[in-house]
């Protein structure tokens, strides 16, 4: 079931949480709303759910105008960061809740609950209470409870936010597989770009109540539309415009740590940098540099490249920018620069 968000705005006092946001989520997709806190991602999700009425705009789910419907009429499944399970009910009763509200007969409820318990791999724990489960198990129960009523769309608000790192990783993979199995249109909110990249088919990057870019994880990473996306998704170095302004390029230059090459010989396009620190992160080596002894800069390379590099005695190397990106007037598509257009001042 597709979701169409049309020109949604929402203000909290003086704070513009959403500013004329429009978005189409196609049927069956798993989409991440990614952004820093205060970017409006949760507000957008809650607006789609009907938990936060927007000041203006319309929301359509499955070609039906949902704008003025209450949350209980929208047939959505919602999963909260802190699970929001009913503590006085067992796992089984939690999952059955929505079905009982719909007055489905008991044998059918029983069967559906059993299916869902199998799906979330908690078949033996149906009679436990939420407090007797781990965080990861609780969140899976919350998911099963939301899926029980066969919602048109599944909305998840920072679903892994309260879990520790290892459980979070497992659950991400599990959610991906679950989505393949159930194939319900799903939207989840996260501030973790790694999580968005790993789980989502499509990522919607948000900032200050607006959508910065929509695209596949690969597009977002390789072709960021704005400086914000470039900085928020993955690591990036920024070379301020004043460094090369005399050459007529009034824009900051962005380059990923792996988009550079270090060498000892000076060329027309290389920039001298001093090595501050060498960080070994498993199979990759990170170099903390100081470009022209002024601008902090990170370079990344693998072990082989690092060993091939002969370290100069004075700690000064030459940095060659292989994949520099600029954003002239913050236009929609980034401009890739030929490497020779960057020169040191």
């Amino acid at each position: 079931m597709s979701i169409i968000v049309e020109n949604i705005s929402k203000q909290f006092g003086q704070f513009q949480a959403l500013d004329r946001v429009s978005l189409t989520i196609p049927d069956g997709k798993l989409v991440a709303l990614l952004g820093p806190s205060g970017s409006g991602k949760s507000t957008l999700l809650r607006a789609i759910a009907g938990l936060e009425p927007p000041d203006q705009g319309r929301i359509w789910i499955n070609d039906q105008d949902m704008t003025h419907l209450n949350v209980e009429q929208r047939q959505i499944g919602f999963v909260f960061q802190h699970y929001a399970l009913f503590k006085h009910l067992t796992v089984r009763q939690n999952i059955a809740f929505g079905l009982e509200i719909r007055k489905i007969n008991r044998p059918d409820i029983r069967q559906r609950v059993n299916e869902l318990l199998d799906l979330i791999q908690l078949a033996g724990l149906g009679d436990r209470y939420p407090i007797q489960l781990s965080g990861g198990q609780r969140q899976r129960v919350a998911l099963a409870r939301a899926l029980a009523v066969q919602p048109q769309v599944l909305l998840l608000d920072e679903p892994f936010g309260a879990l520790d790192a290892q459980v979070r990783k497992d659950l991400r993979r599990w959610l991906r597989n679950l989505h393949h199995e159930v194939n319900v249109t799903s939207v989840f909110v996260t501030h973790d770009q790694e999580e968005a990249m790993e789980v989502a088919d499509e990522i919607v990057v948000m900032n200050e109540g607006k959508i910065e870019q929509i695209g596949s994880p690969q597009t977002i990473y390789d072709y960021p539309a704005t400086p914000f996306v470039m900085k928020f998704v993955g690591e990036v170095n920024v070379i301020p415009s004043f460094l090369h302004q005399p050459q007529g390029l009034p824009h900051d230059i962005f380059v990923r740590p792996h988009g550079v090459k270090l060498q000892t010989q000076v060329t027309d396009t290389s920039i001298p940098a001093k090595i501050i620190q060498i960080i070994h992160r498993g199979r990759d080596i990170y170099l903390e540099l100081s470009l022209l002894d002024r601008i902090p800069f990170m370079a990344q390379m693998n072990r082989d490249e690092w060993q091939a590099l002969t370290m100069p005695a004075d700690q000064w190397v030459q940095v060659e920018l292989l994949q520099p990106i600029t954003f002239p007037q913050a236009s929609a598509s980034p401009h890739r620069l030929p490497a020779d257009s960057v020169t040191a001042a």
């Binding site: 938990l51 209450n70 209980e72 802190h82 929001a84 009913f86 509200i101």
Partner: peptide
């Protein structure tokens, strides 16, 4: 008491009375 629990119940189709 978490107010989210109430939102969860409503998203599952429960009316305010329920």
């Amino acid at each position: 008491m978490e107010t989210e629990v109430e939102a969860a119940a409503r998203s599952l189709g429960a009316t305010p009375g329920q």
